[in-house]
Design a protein around this nucleic acid. Structure first.
Lengths: 115, 115
DNA sequence: CTGGATCCTGTAAGATACTG
DNA sequence: CAGTATCTTACAGGATCCAG
């Protein structure tokens, strides 16, 4: 029995635990956008197509809570908030890259149409 | 614009496409269980803790439809059905392994309790 | 043994409008 | 600029019972 509990949620495997950190529709696009540099809220919103304010802010908060992303507030005017990848977030990049290349392999043999 | 369409669903990135093939709670446990050999329905059910008949069969059907798993029926009595990984499914294994090791790294710095 | 059928619920995610 | 607040919808997943 290797089930375990973290923050009142039961996980059945390390993979499921990893998925809690990078899964869902928006976490990976956010992490990838922060790969090369920290960005502020509006910059993230511009870079991630289709994302709404609600999803951007809730996913950022979850990533922050899990220690994947850190947030720096500069009390200027207008206000400025900067998001950066933390160590855990940086460690996710190789995993995401492999997922991306696997996705590309799958796309080669799939019936794909572009808009 | 790199959005694309596959089977009437819009995807925003290769990663999202990959996730459609291995994402959710049960697809990875199923794929991992089939890593070393084909298994029949009941063997899968025994090996995958907590899974219900409904989730096992629906996820197997989805994996089959996506070409990740193949299904062989032996018309014996009692009936016998064998599931094996296809080429696409085998290609997913390195990705899953990396996800697992990332999950283990995350677990080392997390506050985990065992049941 | 290998599934199917139904009903139900929780949560992710979308739409839209508003605010310090 | 950087978020909030509601309302609503979609779908994954759970529970239970049934069937060839």
């Amino acid at each position: 029995m290797k089930d375990f509990i973290h923050q009142n949620k039961v996980y059945y495997s390390p993979v499921e635990f990893a998925m809690a950190h990078i899964g869902g529709v928006w976490k990976i696009p956010i992490i990838v956008s922060l790969r090369t540099s920290g960005l502020r809220y509006g910059e993230l919103k511009d870079r991630i197509a289709h994302i709404s304010d609600k999803m951007l802010i809730t996913q950022l908060r979850e990533l922050e809570e899990k220690g994947m992303v850190s947030r720096t507030i500069y009390r200027e005017k207008p206000p400025r908030v900067d998001y950066q990848l933390s160590e855990k977030g940086i460690q996710a990049l190789p995993v995401i890259d492999l997922l991306a290349s696997y996705g590309q392999v799958l796309m080669q043999t799939a019936d794909i149409k572009y808009k």
